[in-house]
Each structure stands twice: as structure tokens, then as C-alpha cells.
């Protein structure tokens, strides 16, 4: 039995778009828990509601009903300064398209969440150097995004997401805009961060290869939890886990009649 504490609880979460006859239910009462230090993957077909789920947790979307509880606090009630603090300190967000500010250097991009909460780059120099070394981006720290490769950009974005030591890193298709080589580098780095720093990561992905780095995967279909896969990190290789993921994805493609 896993003795780790719950970090995040999602309870009966629903999200409905539109009104009246045009209503679309994107999430239909999803509930699950995320443990501290977990590397959780969310998979599902397009339109299954996985990005909506991540957006609700990241407070980019307001759920229609249900609760999202991070360290015992219901985040759906957050407003103003508390909401800004939650976004800047308690979660880190990794976007598919990096979303680096292209007129800021890598260093300035990374320190942005800290500066927003009153910490200067000088005060955080040690942390910047540590995260930059971990993610292999020291040489590009004083460069602008236009002078970096896609992989470097995404690692700078990861450093920005991690610099304020958030409770959880939310990643939305982080390898979606990268080639396979840079995807592998990024996933290796994320896995290292997860294992060495015990950082909780929740990643939405289409890519079975990316998902194979996770310790647990939730499959979503039509706004509901459909299946769950756990990897025995100690005894199961990523290649074996990958095989299992692909099998579930094939069954997902055939509809719920093939549910395991």
C-alpha cells in the first residue's frame, strides 16, 4: 500500500460549456487523487476532456461543480491575490507552445514568477543556477528565445515553472511541439526532477512514449474516467509500460465495449 500523502483531490468535477440546447458536458463528475511525488499522466482521445481537466486544476477554467482540493484547500473559492498566489507559487504550468515571453532573456523569463511575488533575481541566484544546471540551460540563460532551439525553449519554460518550487507541475502536452530527440531530453529531465526532488507532476499527453515516463496514467473518455494504469517503477521498464499503454489506447479506440 502506498503510504504517501494525498496532494491533490478532485471530487465529482463537472464542466459544462454553452447554455440550453447548446450545452456540452466536457467533464462528467470526475474524481481522483494525486499523491505527493507522483508522476501522473492523463491520456485520452481528442475532445475527451483531458485539457479541460488540467485547465480547471490550473484555474484557467472555472468548474461547473465539484471540488479541487490542493493540500486541504478548495481552490475553486480562490479570488484576487489568493488566486494569483496559487498560480504563481503553488502550481507550475508547462505549455505545449512554451509561452516564453520572447522579449525577455531566459534568465528574466525564469525569474518572472519570483519577481511577481517580490523575490529578486539576485536573491534567487542560487536556485536559478541549480535549476539551470539540472535542465542544461546554463549557456542560454542570457539569450532571447529567438536565439534558442525548441528543446532549450521548453526546458527554460520548465525552469520557469519549477523555480518557485510549486507543489505540483502541470504539463499540457509538453512534448507536442518538440522533435523526438528533444522530447526525450525533456522527459528525462522531468523524470529526474520527479525522482530527485520528489516533485509531483501531472502531464496531459497524447503520446504513449511520453506517457511511459509516468508512474500512473488515467485514461479519460467522454469526460469520464475510463481506465487507470499503474507502473511498478522498480520492476517495470518504460518499454514494457509503453506496451501496456499502447494496448489500452487501442482498446480505447474501439470504444467502451472493449473496457478492461
Amino acid at each position: 500500500m502506498d503510504t504517501r500523502k494525498d496532494l491533490l483531490q478532485v471530487e465529482s468535477l463537472t464542466k459544462t460549456y454553452g447554455k440550453g440546447a447548446n450545452q456540452t458536458e466536457a467533464l462528467k463528475g470526475i474524481s481522483f487523487r494525486v499523491l505527493e511525488g507522483e508522476f501522473l499522466g492523463i491520456m485520452g482521445a481528442s475532445g475527451s476532456g483531458k485539457t479541460t481537466l488540467l485547465s480547471c486544476i490550473a484555474t484557467m477554467l472555472k468548474p461547473t461543480s465539484g471540488k479541487i482540493i490542493l493540500r486541504g484547500q478548495d481552490i475553486s473559492g480562490f479570488r484576487g491575490g489568493k488566486l494569483a498566489d496559487y498560480r504563481g507559487k503553488e502550481i507550475g504550468y508547462l505549455f505545449q507552445e512554451f509561452e516564453l515571453l520572447d522579449n525577455l532573456t531566459a534568465r528574466e523569463n525564469i525569474t518572472l514568477p519570483l519577481a511577481l511575488h517580490g523575490v529578486t533575481a539576485r536573491q534567487a541566484e542560487q536556485e536559478i543556477q541549480a535549476i539551470a544546471s539540472l535542465l542544461d540551460i546554463v549557456p542560454v540563460l542570457d539569450k532571447f528565445p529567438s536565439q534558442m532551439s525548441g528543446g532549450q525553449k521548453q526546458r527554460v519554460a520548465a525552469a520557469r515553472a519549477l523555480i518557485s518550487d510549486p507543489d505540483i507541475l502541470l504539463a499540457d502536452e509538453p512534448t507536442g511541439a518538440l522533435d523526438s530527440k528533444n522530447s526525450k531530453i525533456l522527459l528525462d529531465k522531468l523524470a529526474t526532477v520527479n525522482s530527485t526532488q520528489n516533485k509531483t507532476i501531472m502531464m496531459v499527453t497524447h503520446d504513449a512514449n511520453a506517457a511511459s515516463y509516468c508512474s500512473r496514467i488515467l485514461f479519460i473518455q467522454d469526460g469520464q474516467l475510463f481506465h487507470e494504469l499503474r507502473r511498478n517503477v522498480e520492476s517495470e521498464s518504460t518499454a514494457d509500460f509503453y506496451e501496456r499503454i499502447v494496448t489500452v489506447m487501442a482498446q480505447l479506440g474501439g470504444g467502451s465495449a472493449n473496457a478492461l
Partner: peptide, 15 residues
């Protein structure tokens, strides 16, 4: 100035 900047100071100046 950026090592000692807080809030959106650096962003504002870069814009």
C-alpha cells in the same frame, strides 16, 4: 537593473 527587479518591472522595461 533586472537582478533587483520585482513584479513586472523587467517586463515593462523590455516592452
Amino acid at each position: 537593473k533586472s537582478p533587483d527587479a520585482i513584479g513586472l518591472q523587467t517586463f515593462t522595461a523590455r516592452q
